[in-house]
Nucleic acid binder design. Sequence first.
DNA 1: GCGTTCAATGTACCT
DNA 2: ACAGGTACATTGAACGCG
Length: 794
Amino acid sequence: MKVTFWLLEINSEPRDGKAELWLWGIAENGERVLIIDRNFVGYFYAVLAEGFDPAKVADEIRKAHNASIVKLEIAQRKLFGKSVQTLKVYCKNPDEIARLAKALREVEGIEECLEDDVRFTMQYLVSNNVVPCSWHEIDADEAENTLGVRADKIYLAKSTPKLLERHDTPALRILSFAMTCYSREGSPKPDRNPIVIISTATSNGEEKQFLAREDRDDKPLLEQFIGYVKKFDPDVIAGYGTNTTDWPYLKERSSNLGLRLCIDRACTEPHTSVYGHTSLTGIANLDLADFADEFPDIKVKTLPNLADYLGIMKTTQHPIIEDVDFADYWESKQKRETLKTFSSENARRVKGVTAALLDFAIQLSSLVGLPLDHVMTAAVGFRVEWFLIKHAQKIGELAPKRVEQPYRPYAGGIVLKPQAGLHANVAVLDFKSMYPNIMITYNLSPDTYVPPTEQEPPEGTFEAPEVKHRFRKQPAGFYKEVLTYLINTRNEIRTKMKTTDPKSTEYRILDARQKAVKVITNAAYGYAGWTGARWYRKPVAEAASAWGRHTILSAIKMAEQKGLRVIYGDTDSLFVAYEEKKTQELETQIKQELGLEIERDKLYTRIFFTEAKKRYAGLLPDGSLDIVGLEVIRGDWAEVAKKVQEHVLEIILKEQAPNKAADYVRGVIADLRQKKVPFRDLIIWKTLTKPVEEYKIKASHVEAAKALSRKGWKMTVGDKVGYVILAGEGRLYDRVKPYVFATYDEIDAEYYVTKQVVPAAARVLEFFGITEEELLKPQKKESGARSLMDFMHG
DNA sequence: GCGTTCAATGTACCT
DNA sequence: ACAGGTACATTGAACGCG
């Protein structure tokens, strides 16, 4: 019979010395189905050296390794665009692939073995064009559920799933949860600290809370939670920080209490898989902490901050409780209620964030071909890479080996020195997807690269400026094909969106899909220059940036010839004193002469530049402020300084009143000294970028991290450490305390005045003749301050 | 021995 | 574990002084 299903998850299971694939899906009628495919045989390619007879080499191999080999095929493939003769070696047991490939590398006539490093499930997906989070049709027989798995129907595959052209998503059952542990000695340890609360919120609107007993016995809690998950039978389980914290904790805690944490659909325990993430058989396990990385605006990546940022739950209205206070809250009768509320709100936050971001994750998964629960944990480079591998398969290109490459940096984009000060009517002209378009235009790709030793091919080459790397004009290279496909696809989606109701589900999915396509498109250049990439070729990235520099420099020349004043520029953007006609002419000329499109992005009513590059603030016609690079948008400055600088910029850009701004700053300084500024505005956050013991110098955030460590808090690389500066003698790093341990009385207000507020304000005001010293003087000084017109350009 | 100078270190940002 | 270009604060050793 024919079964139409949407692929949620995939895993492989050993069976009789072979392996079968389990495809977990949702059928059109809403049934949860497991399709077992026993027909797929894993393989790898043995690339033949030139001049060897494939048949003879194949015979040799058969003789030596007959037991492990199911089938041997002679296959013509491409490697970096070059035609190669290969033997496709099918192995009975996928576990033997790596071993056999290693053995075959020693065989005479075999140059290299490829794709032996692609995991079995991924090989199945890629080679059959089976795509996660997409619909397929398959010919299958229904089988009895003798496996004890949780599925409405089980089928045995009779054919390969056939991908269908549709992008809708079935209604998924989603379980969101949040967990709270009790510990008096820092980070909870599963061998001694109980889980006291687990809160859940499901997609069907149910909310539950599981509590430890009064004696903090959490065995019943765990049993109830496990039972509840089984009963609800989710397709997706979402949480925050679950891969690193919750799942390992739940697993170890269960085991210590003599319980088995079998909540997945095969009734096995969660297993740690590649990328350090947790897999639940038949269920997509989503850790929203991985999603937080998609939002650079969120500086301190916590669940409440993520939910706040997405407008799901404001931290101002639903206050957070710090980890260090959990034990106290649990022990007090009254506070425990607050903690319980906080916990259920966290489950609700998880639910809200999941609802907001799942569309994107699903579309990214279906675009790059990685299963849903892997795609968000995968680093950007791997997302691009899987997309490329999927595409390579379609055109008979082999996935090259990842080869250890020495890191050799190369020149990047050009940044112009800005014309410092205030400007009115400044337009930003941006090159549209500059690097992808350059790669397409000049056919930059590993397979089109012509090394210096090679002769000029008859079809001719594009030669990059400065670096002189050459690329064949024909045929279209791998990157060119992929990027063209991506750009066309995005345009098609965006065209379709124009005729779709913006409130419809379809529109939402299209928008998520075009975003996913954009992410992959924009990451392709970086991928090409990443030494870890399978398709790494330094000249490709180096040529792209060289052409980028050439392009922007040419554009500047053209602008200036037209009398357009260029105020600033960075890599692919030009800031010009806006003149409509000249700007339009420039757009046309650039399109004609450089073959690249530039578009007018923003038009600033006024814009302020410091002397420094990459730092400015502009006022848009709608009255909003765009602040770039300055302290306001940096996560490692105290909030008090950021607020002051933002307000100063607003006064400057909107009212052009530096003295008013200075008075405002003096007011905040006075508040600070009187301790009227909220404590939370004094916290400084910095990331731990390496293990504490590896630092060569004493740094404030490292000292704060050590203090947390001493109290039992586990500090790991990537953690953000929040600390405050205390009054006292000595080096800064000696006057640091994690904010969760500090009281307001200990604070060194003077530090925040002289090292935070004043420098942040002076960064802007110094251009208007107001120095740090003047800001520190209690009274405003009328004389000497010049009129703003003296600072205005044009 | 003490203050000053400056390269090194570290973080976070921009495109 | 996608690229390079940039600003800035703080540390800590070298430096200068005499």
